[in-house]
Design a protein around this nucleic acid. Structure first.
Lengths: 336, 336
DNA sequence: AACGTTACTGGTAACGTTTCCAGCCTCTTT
DNA sequence: AAAGAGGCTGGAAACGTTACCAGTAACGTT
């Protein structure tokens, strides 16, 4: 079932059928209806490969995700998928394992699928300008910021919250409530990841009220899996018992950490307050409800697509967008 | 950057380059290495559209999902993605809104992307044999069973748990512990969905110990969002306060329902026991830990791909696979 | 020396579309 | 009446790849 068959049945040329299908103006009403009728009746759908081939490049936007399981990402992915469709593009989702190089994977995807643009979600920010230039297509980091200063701002685009500021904001809430012994659970503090930025915000909030960062209160996890949050909290508790609050890098980890506290006989927030960043659905239903800094998942996905499409269609250059966050007060914090 | 450029640079024909790329035997070692070197240096990656076009059909497997947000699905999607890649196929993910017809969307996707096979995840089971035949490609329902008897078993394949049996099993656990007033929170009991099957299992467990199903204890939700679980529980509580246990159709809804109970001063499990089906990560970290029937997400995804690939490659016909479930005992149940 | 075999190679048709170009009407304008 | 414009149409090239077919050279066999 090809465009040729349709043409033959309708007694017109393939050009005409193609024009009808692509809603070009130059075709008579009679022919348009005839073609449309046959198309509907035979359930004909154009072959995308052929279309892409001749269109060159296609209408595909790549989304490379490290850690699809992360519930925060799920919401962003959904928003990106919907925004792509609304803008007339197709989303190609590619999940990568934690060992893989995301930009390398993206580059390969970009070439083989003739992508028009690339969005990156999650991972580390250790690219070179050459790598990004090598992509040859517009590129948006979602969930990243250019705060590291390792790359010229006009080499790429980004949509994110100000991670450092966000951590500062939520940890400051703890210090304002009188907390001074504040532990932290996060991923690596070494690499160029969100984790590091949030760690800096944590340090800043502490230093501002005259507290030295105590490295024994810093607990690192390997992944964003909940089991890691639970285990991290346990390690923290086995090492120290004098902290009155803990800042966790993500909601999912925080929910698991609260569970660990509970299982070891500690009450939240009476014995230990808990705050985090993300604002995913789950953390509204934990006991107690988690106090957290909400990142707008929907908006993040929408803006990422918008910026990318603007670039693809030549309307704008690289941009860096910082989204606003809101604090969602739950019951996981008390004064000390 | 096309195969032609590579050929020109290497001083060989496009055929030779193509042969090298596709690992055909008939090419000299010298040429093979020369081509490979140039390919690597120039980061050449074949154009998939052109490949698909001539290969006809492609290596794409479609995955149509209703409700990507559902955390249970997330795990299955990940497994399907990985299994596809391992089997040499590409997964094309397509999320649909709740209003859309999933099989229709699948059919369109199948034609336009030249899919080799289709997997369906979530939704209602209201297809006709004609619709499935119209797909023209192997078709696996994941999360469905053929328990409705509305379709001949050899018209399609499925991978799922025995949903009726699962509900029976977990509700029976409640009756064995002495519960008689058992409420239930689920989606529609009308359509041909999992919801209905689980409802039947619930009814069966009750009837087996001589309890009539009390329709006032049956609460329906619109979606699988957690907010619906919370609201459903609240409606239930406002109507009745004599139930000692509740069976919730999914873990996510159950976690939200527990939160509602807690917020209204009811203790779990002392005042109300809670059980569910799914076994997602989140429910291991609720307070108390949810008692639930675990569906093997990983295995479900793997088997679905395996069955589909077997069919695509002509090794087997339609199959229906029922996966084993295991009960995960948490702290959300007590005897009465 | 003629032949068949083997190992490799290049040319080219096909895949299903879109798009450009040229051409044909018919209608309006001069 | 001639010319130009505009609406519509079909033919054909192009997109990048694979697969088939024919061909060449080197080698071993009769």
């Amino acid at each position: 079932m090809t465009i040729k068959d349709i043409a033959k049945i309708c007694g017109v040329s393939v050009s005409t059928v193609s024009r009808v299908l692509n809603e070009h103006p130059d075709v008579s009403e009679a022919n348009r209806e005839k073609v449309l009728a046959v198309v509907r009746e035979l359930h004909y759908v154009p072959n995308n490969s052929a279309r892409d081939l001749v269109k060159s490049p296609s209408d595909a936007i790549g989304l490379v995700v490290r850690g699809v399981g992360n519930p925060f990402f799920t919401g962003v992915i959904r928003a990106i998928g919907e925004a792509c469709e609304a803008a007339g593009y197709t989303m190609v989702l590619h999940q990568i394992r934690s060992g893989e190089d995301e930009l390398r994977a993206g580059a390969e995807l970009a070439r083989s699928k003739r992508l028009r643009g690339l969005i990156l979600l999650g991972g580390c920010f250790d690219y070179t300008p050459e790598q990004i230039a090598g992509l040859g297509i517009p590129f948006v980091c979602c969930t990243y910021t250019n705060s590291f200063g390792t790359l010229p701002a006009d080499a790429y685009s980004s949509v994110s919250i100000d991670d450092r500021q966000a951590a500062y904001k939520i940890v400051s809430m703890l210090t304002q409530r009188g907390h001074r012994n504040i532990a932290v659970i996060l991923n690596s503090v070494e690499d160029h990841s969100i984790s590091q930025l949030r760690y800096k915000g944590y340090c800043q909030a502490l230093q501002e009220c005259g507290v030295e960062v105590d490295l024994e209160l810093v607990e690192e996890t390997v992944t964003f899996e909940m089991s890691d949050g639970y285990a991290g909290m346990e390690r923290l508790m086995s090492r120290r018992d004098d902290f009155t609050a803990v800042f966790v890098i993500s909601d999912a980890l925080a929910v698991a950490a609260m569970k660990a506290l509970h299982d070891h006989g500690k009450r939240v927030p009476e014995d230990c307050s808990v705050v985090a960043i993300d604002g995913i659905e789950m953390s509204s239903y934990s006991v107690p409800t988690l106090t957290t800094l909400v990142q707008p998942q929907q908006e993040m996905g929408e803006k990422a697509v918008q910026i990318l499409v603007d670039m693809i269609e030549g309307r704008a250059g690289n941009r860096h967008l910082l989204l606003d966050t809101t604090t969602r007060e739950g019951g996981s914090v008390c004064s000390v």
